[in-house]
Amino acid sequence: MSTTQSDRLRELLEPLAAAKGLDLEEIETSRAGKRRMLRIIVDSDEGVELDTCAELSREISDLLDETDVMGEDEYVLEVGSPGADRPLTEHRHYVRATGRLVKFLSNEGGELTARILGVDEEGLDLEVPGLKGRKPTQRRIAFSEIAKARVEIEFNRKSDKKEEEA
């Protein structure tokens, strides 16, 4: 049974990430001139600190040096956390985005921007902002209705200011 390089990397690196309480979200290999790039994306419910990424990067580098999974060619290793605009694709991504404003694209092509209030196994409870001074409304959306979802960046979220003052 043949496995891809990505599968072998995931099998090798997942235990390192898990030992630090992290989820191995993505492994990406690409070419950058003569060198190859190996980009590892990790995340957790609490986020990922820079020091943790640096420690994990050293551990991954040491482990890769001991194996032949990357072959003989030079490569550049990059370990980081997902960006704020990463698509939500896994159940845990939606759980981590609870309280955040998210833009949804439905399977039918419609768009909706709403705040995630709660997540269960079937879908999401949302708060849809009111337009032109109207009150927000609540809505339920099933995972099966979602084609794409991405967190919206909020620079002036009112509830954050209230929490800071309290």
Rank of each mutant, 00 (worst) to 15 (best):
M1Y: 06
M1W: 02
S2V: 09
S2I: 08
S2H: 07
S2T: 09
S2W: 05
T3Y: 04
T4S: 15
T4P: 04
T4Q: 07
Q5L: 11
S6T: 14
S6D: 10
R8I: 05
R8D: 09
R8P: 00
R8T: 07
R8A: 13
L9I: 06
R10E: 12
R10S: 05
E11I: 08
L12Y: 02
L12C: 10
L12K: 07
L13D: 00
L13M: 09
E14I: 06
E14C: 05
E14K: 12
E14Y: 04
E14R: 12
P15G: 07
P15Y: 13
P15I: 13
L16W: 08
A17M: 08
A17E: 02
A18P: 02
A18F: 09
A19H: 11
K20N: 08
K20E: 15
K20R: 15
G21Q: 11
G21L: 10
L22C: 05
L22Y: 01
L22V: 04
D23N: 12
D23C: 05
D23P: 01
L24C: 09
E25Y: 07
E25H: 09
E25I: 13
E25N: 09
E25M: 13
E26A: 12
I27Q: 08
I27R: 08
I27L: 15
I27P: 01
I27V: 15
T29K: 13
T29D: 09
T29H: 05
S30E: 13
R31P: 00
R31I: 14
A32Y: 12
A32Q: 14
G33R: 14
G33M: 14
G33T: 10
K34P: 04
K34M: 11
K34N: 14
K34S: 12
R35K: 15
R35S: 14
R36V: 08
R36Y: 09
R36M: 11
R36F: 13
M37I: 15
M37E: 14
M37S: 11
M37Y: 07
R39V: 10
R39L: 13
I40Q: 06
I40H: 06
I40N: 03
I41F: 10
I41Y: 04
I41N: 01
V42M: 12
V42I: 15
V42A: 08
V42F: 08
D45K: 08
D45T: 03
G47H: 07
V48K: 02
V48Y: 01
E49A: 05
D51Q: 02
D51M: 02
D51G: 03
D51P: 00
T52G: 00
T52R: 04
T52A: 05
C53L: 03
C53D: 01
C53A: 04
S57C: 03
R58V: 00
E59Q: 11
I60W: 01
I60K: 01
I60G: 01
I60V: 10
I60Q: 02
S61H: 04
S61Y: 03
S61K: 04
L63R: 13
L63D: 01
L63I: 03
L64W: 04
L64P: 01
L64Y: 05
